[in-house]
Every structure is written in C-alpha cells, then in structure tokens.
Nucleic acid binder design. Structure first.
Lengths: 140, 140
DNA sequence: CTGCATGCAAACCGTTTGCATCCCC
DNA sequence: GGGGATGCAAACGGTTTGCATGCAG
C-alpha cells in the first residue's frame, strides 16, 4: 500500500543513484554511493543521496540493509535473499541459498508479534581477508 | 582463542553491568543499561559502560546484537538464538525457534567465505504497537 | 609503585534536517 | 507561479577516545 502509491518523480539524481547502485553487486554504503554518483554529478550533495536512498527504499525500489557494522548498506535487488558479512573488512555479499519461508511460519507460532519478514545474515571471513592471514580480527 | 585468553579483571563496574544486563530479558541499548547501572553506581561514566560492554562482548561473556535500528543492543544470553524486532518501537525480543544449523552448512557451500556464524532477525509489530493501531509505521 | 580502569568531556562519524534556491509542471 | 527537489552547511545522536586521576595488586 506504500509501494506504488505515492509515486515520485524520477529526477536526474534519483535516476543516476539508482543506476549506479544497480551497476554493482557489492552493497555500497551511502557515502560509497555518493562517491560513485559524484563522478557523474559532481555537484550532488550527500544529503540528496541519503534522502533519495531513503525514499527509494520506502517505495520498494531498493533495499536498505540494516546489517551489522556501523553503516547502512543498500541493494538494488529487492527480492528476499540472504547476506554474508566479512568480519575482517565489513564487506557484504549475497549468499545464494534458498530462502526459508518456514522460518517465518515457525516464528509466527512462537511469538505474540505479528511477524512480517525476516533476514538472515551470516558472518565470516571473505577470501581476501583469509589470504591476508589470521592476524587482526577487529574491524568497523 | 580470544575467549578465555586475555582474562580481564572483574571490577565493580563490570560486575554490576553484567548483573544488570543478566537481570532483564529485554535487550537494552548501551544507554538504557547506563541508566540501570547508574542507580547503583551514580558516578559511573557512559564511556565506561561502552568500554566494558565491548570488552565483555569480545571475551564472549555477553552478546553484542548488531540488529536493525540505530543503536546496538546487548544480551547476556550467549548461545545462538534468534530475535524479532518491532518496527514500531524498536524493541527486540527473543524468538523461541529452533536454531537451523543447516543454514550455516548450506551457506558454506554457496560461498567462498569461511562461514563462522549466522543470525536470524525477524521483523514485525509487537503486541503493544499492534494495540496502538496501524497508523505510524516509521520509527528509528 | 605500576598499570590497568575509571570519570569526564571533547572529538568523531554516519545520518538527518533547515533553509534558500532551483527546476519542472 | 507553486511545490517538490536540490545543494549546502549546521545540527544530531550514538559511540569512541584522550587525559588526568584513582585504585587494586
């Protein structure tokens, strides 16, 4: 009921933000995205990026990932899928694992909440952090 | 290898923070905990609370929940379990659902990461927010 | 006496917001 | 001409950190 309702204008900024986000398979933070977009729109403001990411997330055009770490990350792929986050460098990748809808059903039985969705986040170490050795564990 | 190694001193502050955290089944934020602890240790500093929560999380004595929302939450129960977060008020509760270890196995096969753990976070509306009606959806 | 832990306050960093201007309808 | 969108910069809120002091071993 929020999804297609209040359709917003597709301004140049919004379009380019969306394009840049769609272009990558990483899950950039707002300021990473800001840097990417700024190469094409040098005068864009950080605030505009935040505002539009928020708006597009509300309208279901993109996904706002509230994963671990300090910064929010964004994803142009909106259908439910799981993520894995590297505890070494904070990088987030998709995990190509079947979504377990049963989880929601089970949860619904186990709580007095109205269960609306779920997200699974794996944690681990990405290949390049593995290569760098087992030294530092702390990040972000 | 980090867990019991650098064992730290159990200062009064640490002990009381731990006690207060264990006392509740909610998953308090650092400043909620700060308020609770301050009733017993009026001169404690917020920094001390943060420092000690961080330390205890590193030593596996407590869990740092990096769930959605802006603030981190803490949990004295350290064995893996899932959570549900109210999109209305941000409250976080345990979900009494069997932990799906298969998830980790599947994930391990689907990625080049070294998979270390996982967390499932459900989202929904808590009883009291349901009661308050369906109006505002936005929070935190 | 020595060093880790604390209290305090300032710094930090990601995000949000107020406001004047701009641009599209 | 009017209303939403933008750029800019200041404000915000949660967390971290530097530093002088305190306290346990």
């Amino acid at each position: 009921m929020d999804t297609q309702a209040n359709m917003m204008r597709l301004t140049t900024q919004r379009q380019i933000i969306l394009e840049e986000l769609s272009k990558v398979k990483t899950h950039p933070t707002a300021s990473e995205l800001y840097d990417m977009v700024r190469k094409r729109l040098p005068r864009i403001g950080l605030g505009t990026v935040y505002r539009n990411l928020e708006l597009m997330a509300e309208n279901g055009m993109i996904l706002k990932l509230e994963v671990g770490g300090t910064q929010k990350r964004f994803d142009a792929t909106t259908d439910t899928h799981y993520h894995i986050r590297c505890s070494g460098c904070g990088r987030v990748d998709d995990i190509d694992t079947p979504v377990v809808d049963d989880l929601v059903r089970e949860a619904a039985e186990a709580t007095s909440y109205e269960v609306l969705g779920h997200h699974v986040e794996f944690s681990g170490r990405c290949p390049s952090c593995l290569k760098k050795g087992r030294k530092g564990d702390r990040v972000q």
